[in-house]
Design a protein around this nucleic acid. Structure first.
Length: 772
DNA sequence: CCGCCCACGC
DNA sequence: GACGTACGTGGGCGGA
């Protein structure tokens, strides 16, 4: 069996309760801190969990151990914290260790059973599955539902989800009823039942991952634990459509809540078949994202963690991913039924758990008023897509290619040797070994020469090759990332680009975009702007409208800190960077602020939001550290409440273990009390930034919902098509332009009421650049 | 396949 | 003596 099968499994929750420890992983922390590095064996584990607990018993609390750490460990502490080569049984130390390549010599790592159990448990907590697989040559199976949970979250969840430490449940050892519905009659009975429900969970199986092209292979439905139905769809498009049409009314029934895991995908797939999913939405993935924004949210993970159940793996059906991966179409019906029905069953079970947990942790409002309603709106935006001017891009590609060839020749000529300019490794060797541009050249973690833009700019006057390399980089980036990539992602069906928004990635609450990423289209450099020009309205009757929040994050800083001076600046509608400059440089008249002063103030403003240090600011502005420190001091003099707010955010995080946004979105900061300054610093910057960035995300999401509903209400043809963090883009039906402008501005500016006004800038044009 | 480096956006 | 600004996605390289 698994290592240490006979070893006593320690219930950390009870220990935590007894000794008033907030978080179970603190025990692990202690273990790391106590680790013994004297034997000099790389990868040597620290003290065992039992010893850690004995220590806690002896000293009464974690705090007391910290106080007496020197007494307990001798000089170990400094040594441990400084010696990065050691792998310690501590979350944070392992994290540090990851900054440099982790090399664990398996041969030297002779572990007896208890140690292996400990490492296994640790790796499990850290989600180091692949590392564990290498070390132990086997998979880690989660021991206890909720074991990785933070704080009290899910701490009392031990009802039917706890299978002790042995094998988790799966389809073969769990009682279940998965029913295949293969006649019209059976489907009719199901649909009748569905119509009387207040909610049901569903999942679609499809031929491919892209929802815009996917063919539906099957549909599974569940509304009670361990029981689910599967409807298989035959190959012909027409037959599939007929069967799906039977379900049209149920999906369109506003009174029935629809539950799913990543349900936006299913909504999009059904939309392709002309089926509108209406009514309330509950997505287990999004729910977990709200509960634990820093963790992962896929069904396998959630199921193993919270249900103690290992689902049938997709690889068992269609093989490992890659070129030879099979299709859902070719999976034997019985297996497909089990797989599909199980997915719906598990998703339903997760909903039961997560909905209660959202309630318990005060996240229901955020969930019900923002995140869940946003899901179908994102689906609509993705489905609408944006048109691109491919011929313009193709022309641009030709130009870029020509220039690239020229500059490549020039670089090779100057280097005097053939090499791959796109290889940072080779480039570094040419610049620093061969041309010897900088005897003290910076190196990266992996001991390569750094060739980042930041580094190269400083060498620009040493050799003309440097600017050529920078130019090459910039051209190459435009060509490969945008100009060549975008047309490839155009849908054949619609001739448009359909990005995909991920609502459960960014720990702060922002959306992210991929396939393609439309949130990082160039705008700053002149040549990059050409790419924006290629984004155009759907036809000549339409025009693009861009609406962006002005300085939303700084306004939020003003609101949340309640700093009178900053609030005043925004109320007077003065340029905030100029106002900042006047404060930190003591320039009475705003009109006397110089460009350079404004630039520095602007950088300082960004730094403030991100929790910058004097060093960071000095690097950014290329000024001495003392001057940077003075800037920051003056900033806090000028805006005293901002400093208070930052300190308060950190202390809130220390006390509660998390920080919150305006709408109550939480971010847990487990490292906020870390004794490692670097790790703690990171958490502290998060404590400052997360409420600001996250509140901005809350606000634009609210605005999206309001705007979308208003467009619907007024029966307009205009569509909201893109979101870029503080900006919304619309494909406006030209006759509606004035009406839409007013509507959008109104809804965006009034999404929430703050101590300062929110202002939105509008622009329209025949392409995205012009609209800005 | 995966980690690293680099670079684009907000 | 090292470290030092938040959140993302993607392309290309190079080692395993």
């Amino acid at each position: 069996g698994r290592a240490g099968g006979d070893m006593e499994i320690i219930d950390k929750t009870k220990i935590c309760e007894k000794f008033k420890i907030d978080r179970p992983e603190q025990i692990i922390d202690i273990m790391g801190l106590m680790g013994d590095s004297s034997d000099n064996i790389p990868g040597a584990p620290g003290i065992g969990e039992k010893t850690a607990i004995k220590l806690i018993e002896k000293y009464g609390s974690i705090e007391n151990i910290y106080k007496n750490i020197d007494e307990i460990t001798g000089k170990q502490k400094e040594k441990l914290l400084d010696n990065k080569e050691q792998v310690m049984l501590s979350k944070e130390l392992v994290t540090i260790k990851l900054d440099v390549p982790v090399k664990i010599d398996v041969k030297k790592l002779v572990l007896d059973d208890p140690d292996e159990v400990l490492l296994t448990k640790l790796f499990e907590e850290l989600e180091f599955r692949s590392t564990a697989r290498r070390l132990f040559q086997k998979e880690i199976i989660p021991t206890q539902a909720g074991s990785i949970m933070q704080g009290t979250l899910f701490g009392d969840n031990d009802s039917d989800t706890n299978n002790s430490a042995d094998e988790s449940q799966n389809i073969s050892n769990t009682k279940h009823e998965y029913i295949l519905l293969d006649t019209k009659d059976k489907r009719k009975k199901l649909i009748e039942q569905l119509n009387d429900l207040k909610e049901f969970c569903f999942d679609t199986e499809t031929s491919e991952l892209n929802p815009h092209n996917a063919e539906i292979v099957g549909l599974s439905i569940s509304w009670e634990m361990h029981k689910a139905y599967y409807v298989h769809l035959p190959k012909g498009q027409k037959e599939a459509q007929q069967i799906l049409d039977e379900f049209k009314v149920v999906f369109g029934n506003e009174k029935i809540r629809k539950i799913g895991q990543n349900i936006k995908y299913d909504i999009l797939v059904l939309k392709n078949y002309g089926i509108q999913v209406r009514g309330e939405i509950f997505d287990s993935m999004i729910a977990h994202y709200l509960l634990q924004p820093d963790l992962r949210h896929n069904l396998n993970y959630l199921s193993e963690q919270y249900l103690g159940y290992k689902p049938v793996q997709i690889e068992e059906l269609i093989g490992k991913k890659g070129a030879n991966q099979g299709s859902m179409r070719n999976v034997p019906l019985e297996k497909l039924k089990d797989y599909a029905a199980e997915d719906a069953d598990l998703t339903f079970q997760l909903k039961e758990l997560f909905e209660k947990e959202l309630e318990k942790t005060g996240l229901s409002n955020l969930s019900e008023t923002i995140e869940m309603p946003l899901i179908p709106i994102l689906a609509e935006m993705e489905s609408a897509g944006i048109k691109i001017n491919t011929s313009a891009l193709n022309e641009f590609a030709k130009d870029l290619n020509k220039e690239l060839i020229k500059i490549e020749e020039k670089i090779i000529d100057q280097a005097g040797v053939q090499f791959n300019i796109s290889s940072p490794k080779q480039l570094g060797e040419v610049l620093f070994d061969q041309l010897k541009l900088d005897p003290n050249a910076k190196k990266t973690k992996s001991k390569q020469y750094s060739t980042s833009e930041e580094t190269l700019v400083k060498l620009a006057d040493k050799h003309p090759i440097v600017n050529d390399v920078l130019e090459f980089r910039s051209l190459k980036k435009l060509l490969s990332t945008y100009v060549e990539a975008l047309p490839k992602l155009m849908s054949e069906k619609t001739g448009k680009i359909h990005t995909s928004y991920n609502q459960a990635v960014a720990a702060t609450g922002r959306l992210s975009s991929n396939n393609p990423n439309l949130q990082n289209i160039p705008i700053r450099e002149e040549r990059g702007r050409e790419i924006r020009k290629a984004f155009i309205p759907q036809d000549k009757d339409h025009i693009l409208l861009a609406a962006d929040y002005s300085q939303i994050e700084l306004r939020l800083m003003a609101h949340m800190s309640q700093d009178e001076k900053m609030i005043e600046a925004f109320k007077n509608n003065t340029d905030i960077h100029t106002a900042t400059a006047s404060k930190i440089f003591h320039v009475e008249q705003l009109s006397d602020v110089t460009k350079d002063q404004r630039r520095k103030a602007k950088t300082a403003n960004f730094g403030i939001i991100y929790g910058i240090s004097a060093f960071g600011l000095s690097q950014r502005l290329n000024i001495p550290r003392t001057e940077a420190k003075q800037l920051i001091d003056e900033y806090f003099n000028g805006f005293p409440k901002v400093k208070e707010y930052m300190d308060k955010s950190i202390s809130v995080a220390r006390e509660k273990g998390y920080v919150e946004t305006l709408m109550g979105r939480k971010r847990f900061l487990k490292d906020i009390n870390s004794r490692n300054a670097t790790v703690r610093g990171f958490a502290e910057r998060n404590a400052i930034n997360a409420p600001i960035q996250g509140s901005a995300a809350d606000i634009i999401k609210l605005a999206m919902i309001d705007v979308f509903r208003e467009l619907e209400k007024q029966n307009l043809k205009t569509k909201m098509i893109l979101q870029v963090h503080d900006e919304l883009i619309f494909d406006v039906y030209k006759p509606e332009l004035e009406q839409v402008k007013e509507l959008v501005k109104n809804k965006m500016e009034n999404a929430v009421m703050l101590s300062i006004p929110l202002t939105v800038d509008l622009g329209s044009g025949e392409n995205w650049l012009e609209a800005h």
